[in-house]
Design a protein around this nucleic acid. Sequence first.
DNA 1: CTGAAAGCGCTTACAG
DNA 2: CTGAAAGCGCTTACAG
Lengths: 354, 354
Amino acid sequence: MPDDDLPENSAQEPGRVTIRDVARQAGVSITTASRALNETGRMTQETRDRVRAAATELGYRPNSIARGLVSKRSFAVGLITNDTYGRFTLPVAAGLSSSMADRGVSVFLCAGEDDADRVQANIDAMQDRRVDGLVIAGKRIDRGLPFDLPDLGIPVLYANAACPPGAIGFVPDDRQGAHMAVSHLVVLGRRRIAHVTGKKDFEASALRVQGWEQALAEAGLAPFGEVRYGTWSEECGYDAALDLLAPGRAERPDAVFCGNDQIARGLIDAAKGMGIDVPEDLAVVGFDNWEIFAKATRPPLTTVDMEFLELGRVVGHTMLDLIDGKDVAPGLRRLPCRIVERRSCGGGGAGADT
Amino acid sequence: MPDDDLPENSAQEPGRVTIRDVARQAGVSITTASRALNETGRMTQETRDRVRAAATELGYRPNSIARGLVSKRSFAVGLITNDTYGRFTLPVAAGLSSSMADRGVSVFLCAGEDDADRVQANIDAMQDRRVDGLVIAGKRIDRGLPFDLPDLGIPVLYANAACPPGAIGFVPDDRQGAHMAVSHLVVLGRRRIAHVTGKKDFEASALRVQGWEQALAEAGLAPFGEVRYGTWSEECGYDAALDLLAPGRAERPDAVFCGNDQIARGLIDAAKGMGIDVPEDLAVVGFDNWEIFAKATRPPLTTVDMEFLELGRVVGHTMLDLIDGKDVAPGLRRLPCRIVERRSCGGGGAGADT
DNA sequence: CTGAAAGCGCTTACAG
DNA sequence: CTGAAAGCGCTTACAG
């Protein structure tokens, strides 16, 4: 058999072999080649196999840009976030990208922009790329984009961010998480359960307070004192402990539900300094399951995980449904949190999970 | 003037107005419209203005997919990372995406995959999308991709990851950072400077040890004892302090350079527990400038910042050069770290910067 | 079962 | 200075 007129560039020039090459190699038309590769149309198995063999041999990879032009779909979505730190966004992004990757859609990351102009520029860029959808991710459930989004003609989802009326959003269920944490304390026999949390103007704070109150009410218990607001910091947990656990007090809590792991950490440090044993004298639950804190605290923290990875996956699946044209009711979905037991409440506590 | 034959969809159907619409509206050919919009070719200013006005009026946005098909460039790069946590990758990604955004290139995020098959799938997807370049980001400078990359025909850059021979990589300059930290201690008058760090098999550990030794040698000082290796954890800093600062010791250090902020935190906590004043009796420098630790430690940590945001920007600019066809010498670049002064060494320490 | 042709929305030689 | 035409690499009616 004589040489082909073109050099045998089997996988030689990646990205350069086109469907035309495959068709020629298989001795079929471009149309047939396309159909064989896409499992579409009807043809003899023999033809299909021959085309596929040619594609493999040549190392053919379809150009998704060309495909996008005709299908009028980019098979890509944009992720806009203002969370430069990445603590919330990266797990969400990982969940999102893994759930979409299976369906061949990739995600553009537009990270770290907070001022309106740059956000707008990112959104424009995403539109120019004809993304199939947009997800707006944030670090606070009560803050959204710095401006209202006009109708973009594509699905928009909000993840861990405020979602305008009529839109679709996903956030962790702070109230449920708090409820679960406090119920856990109740089941363990605690009765005087205080709550120390972060800034009062965060919606997350209010929801966690509600969860605390509600779980207590269901157990026939009264809140132990007023909620103590602070700054989400270790220091604020530390200071709260100094006051809450002061020896002079008539009654002291036997448990504290903390608004985040840093607060719990500070509170436990202070308690230990005061000779109070955790969990014997005082049980503590945190919030976040930020492992760098939760696992380093002595004893390691029992805490609430907001399941951002899973949240990202749910956002991904919902986006795929929307792209497929399925109907999804507008509104905010609160996704369940999970409690992670370690040792700060006594009871079980996974042995290996320091 | 009679109505046009098409409805006046000025920005009505976003993404639906094409260059053909603009051309018709401006009364020119598609060719001319394209040239006017791209500032290319020669034409009367009047024509150019008329086209631009038409584009604005219609809300025209060029379809970058179509543009990509003809220019054979996607104006996108892929970012592959195994850092699900995001502590390293997100700053790098933010720097990368901001430096490229100005030039109209977007970044695809492929996050959280560690096993070879999924990484390969992501790389395949990026190739199918004909990305203009790829950046491989990691969380350790001595770990790279789980397999060797064949020649992809596009620029590949490594960021905070091991880089194969002949490739181009960027990592923080651990030795320089350590040297700077230790010199800072020396300038402040410290003479007995110990070093407590993380795992011995991390290249970063070895480099920081070198920086420590070198800075001491330059000052005519001997290392204070052996390096203490551990696990990068608070606990390991705590335990090291217990031993290093034990009252029974003939000689105790007057400063400790720590391999990360968590170690510094644990060490300071232990020192305080032993009645040792920081920074009076003992100066401590950390590494990472992980603010959640550095600012929460009492006193707040003076520490070394690895400047990942800037690293991401440099990677972005280098990528743009490579894409433009400029030559960039292969090899690993170590980018300078920056010292952030707070209070754990005494001396200055920004007042406002808690 | 298979193929020639049109077309996705642009850019860019090639001609006037 | 301006335009008709070809073409980027695919998919998909429309015909056989």
